[in-house]
Design a protein around this nucleic acid. Structure first.
Lengths: 262, 262
DNA sequence: CGAGTCGTTGACGCGTTTCAAGTTCGGTGG
DNA sequence: CCACCGAACTTGAAACGCGTCAACGACTCG
């Protein structure tokens, strides 16, 4: 039942295969960070809720290495030994969990400044894949944890981060368990806008680094339903779609009402 | 659309009204902890991942007070000022978020030893309600946070807890976004069994402290679908239902296969 | 024994999924 | 410069799983 065989097919290109190859299906699309030379890929971008002090920066830099990844690459896979902790410098990453038959749930999209791979288990609990060109800082987990022992205020910040992520996860559970397709998409767009606004970005234009498939897997819908719902919101005058990866917010209030179940 | 008016009706008894009254709908059902006198309701039950040392116990006891609550009472409500942190000594509690029209999503069930109300925001992000008679330790949040500053290893444990909760939340997102009704119920039962087993309890009998409505709101289904799915699993020989609040696990392997999408 | 709550079951409806074409668009090569 | 190609997106029609509505039984309590 459901989209089993089909999902396997859809995902086989990037999900099931290893890390070094793949068709890079979205490699040529317009990138948010295409012009970012990523030369200064450094821990300076890592804020951990508040700017790092000199001591913290120094210690982090001492154990970090920098990676550049193309779109559609796996950073790490669910179940693999959790040997590194990562922090995104530029680009966007998806986190996902999958069932054996290929059904996939994206649990979050990460942007610059976000951590991934923070876990207290031996293995990663989810798969992380790049959506765009990504520049990322990598820390050996063991050294990272040793550092935390010496910097308790750093651990306090991580707790704040985890606490916020937990709140976001609970919002997403409400979305997945109880919202209609229109409400889900509206919530998604409002979430992106609010995130952008909090970082000082635009409040009425969104550039989507992910495709319809990723949005569908994030919202617990199918590609077709996401597409239909975009059209519906467009016809209702709440948004405009100059192209598939850009959204203009026209009726922000209407979207917010929708997102909260109005 | 959906179950709006209806859910409002269902919830109006306990959800919308305040803390001191209500019909206590499940007050007379068999309770897991009915015979627990709760006289020794103390921080001794609080393990925070590892047993507390003497210093920690002493400090916690100094700022804690004890509450006893009947079934169906609200501990705190989504949006209320987050003035206290709680730890359950006995009984079971549900955490939930709701939309304006009454649609509700339960994000978790808590048992003895679990914390609730841990947040880094000014307001609680969810509502906490008792499912059974509950004995609970309460700590003024401000004092609790002061204590954390002095006990960094305590904060480390809270980070471990938050990290585990986050992993559980991601599993639940996969459930809500991608699993069928049978898979959801199987996952729920397996989760309860594993939790019991980890605490040294039975591995084939579950006593459900929650009703069908709570299970439905946890699994993103309706009461009717939960009931039908219980019947389906019973007819398939995977479980037996001596009464509505007891489940005997007969085909644990079959349930596990179902839960993971087989 | 009547009233209320909770759980179960049946019939039907609907929103989303499934299946199947189309369409658009960027890249490629003639 | 344009035909061609594949990937991604869109759109339509039909199927289906779950929600909705309604009735009924089991149980508790006053």
């Amino acid at each position: 039942m459901r989209d089993r065989e089909r999902a396997v097919t859809v995902n086989s290109g990037t999900f099931r295969t290893g890390q070094g190859q793949g068709a890079l299906p979205r490699a040529t699309r317009r990138e948010l960070d295409k012009d970012n030379p990523c030369a200064a890929c450094s821990v300076r971008e890592m804020t951990v809720c508040a700017p790092l002090d000199e001591e913290e920066q120094r210690r982090l830099r001492a154990i970090s290495s920098t990676l550049k990844l193309e779109p559609g690459r796996m950073v790490f896979e669910e179940g693999a030994p959790a040997e590194y902790v990562y922090n995104i410098t530029s680009g966007a990453v998806s986190l996902s969990k999958s069932l054996a038959d290929g059904r996939r749930q994206i649990t979050g999209f990460l942007y610059p400044g976000d951590f991934l791979g923070l876990t207290h288990n031996v293995a990663y609990a989810y798969t992380a894949e790049t959506l765009t060109h990504v520049c990322i800082c990598r820390f050996p987990r063991k050294k990272f944890e040793e550092m935390l022992l010496a910097l308790p205020q750093m651990e306090h910040r991580l707790l704040t981060i985890a606490s916020n992520e937990l709140a976001t996860a609970q919002d997403q559970m409400l979305l997945l368990g109880r919202k209609t397709a229109s409400e889900r998409l509206a919530s998604f767009l409002i979430g992106l806008i609010d995130r952008q606004a909090a970082r000082g970005g635009a409040i009425d234009v969104i550039d989507l680094p992910m495709g319809r498939g990723e949005i569908a897997d994030y919202l617990g819908l199918t590609i077709e339903t996401v597409s239909r719902t975009f059209t519906k919101l467009k016809k209702a005058g709440a948004i405009a779609l100059p192209d598939a990866n850009s959204v203009h917010i026209i009726g922000a209030d209407r979207l917010r009402d929708l997102a909260s179940g109005g």
